[in-house]
């Protein structure tokens, strides 16, 4: 599904390149649940953003379903992104001016889904995450865990095949975090959604099917059964 070859990213600091990612090679199959770990500043978020097409590397090649991402037109890449990728953030990042219902609905607006269909889809999501009663509330009126549920619902509404999560439980207590992880596992196993998460917690990483460690921009070791290589 995803093939990264010789991906490098650097920032010029004081005239010298400062590598954030260095020659990353990584293959991810559809249906995997990958955890990316590593110390702070090691480049985890950067890597995830590159996979999520929100950021560009300075060097390297990226194939998504066999198509070279950096050779395609911007519009095409946008479409690919819209159809296939859902993002979840540590800080939830909901739009403060929109209520729960409207926040979840947003991605559908950009995919020109008909209004009646949107209603049904958002309704499904609300049901599924048990937040029907909260649909008229605004983000500021929700707890952190509830906000993250809305964030996940929003990431899933457009039925993506790849879910990217950057420390999704970072702002939650352990019980809330566990629930989210359970949910991920379920999504991965029952619906076959590919998930890539960045996490600091070994325990959370265990939910995944594979784990990689980043250190100073390099992949350190491959743990657990090595399906892809």
């Amino acid at each position: 599904m995803i093939a990264l070859q010789h991906i490098s990213k650097w920032y010029n600091i004081g005239g010298k390149p400062n590598f954030v990612l260095k020659d990353i090679n990584l293959n991810i199959q559809e249906g995997e649940f990958l955890s990316i770990m590593g110390p702070s500043g090691s480049g985890k978020s950067t890597l995830l953003n590159i996979i999520g097409m929100l950021d560009l590397p300075n060097e390297g090649r990226y194939d998504f379903f066999g198509q070279s991402v950096y050779d395609m037109k911007e519009k095409h890449r946008q479409d690919l992104y819209k159809k296939n990728i859902g993002f979840i953030f540590q800080a939830y990042h909901l739009i403060d001016e929109l209520n729960v219902y409207e926040n979840i609905e947003t991605p559908l607006l950009y995919q020109n889904v008909k209004s009646s269909e949107r209603k049904a889809m958002v309704g499904d999501m609300l049901d599924r995450f048990n937040i029907v009663g909260k649909k008229d509330l605004f983000p500021s009126q929700l707890s952190g865990g509830q906000q993250q549920l809305v964030g996940i619902a929003r990431a899933l509404i457009a039925k993506p095949r790849l879910l990217l999560a950057d420390e999704p439980t970072g702002n939650l207590n352990s019980k809330q975090g566990e629930e989210i992880m359970q949910l991920f596992k379920q999504l991965n196993e029952e619906e076959g959604i590919t998930i890539i998460q960045v996490t600091h917690s070994e325990k959370n990483a265990e939910y995944g099917s594979r784990k990689i460690d980043l250190l100073d921009g390099r992949i350190q070791q491959h743990i657990k059964e090595n399906i892809s290589l």
Binding site: K82, F87, L94, T106, Y110
Partner: peptide, 12 residues
Amino acid sequence: KEVGIKKVTGSR
């Protein structure tokens, strides 16, 4: 932030 989220959720 709103702009960022909208772009992440697919807005052109």
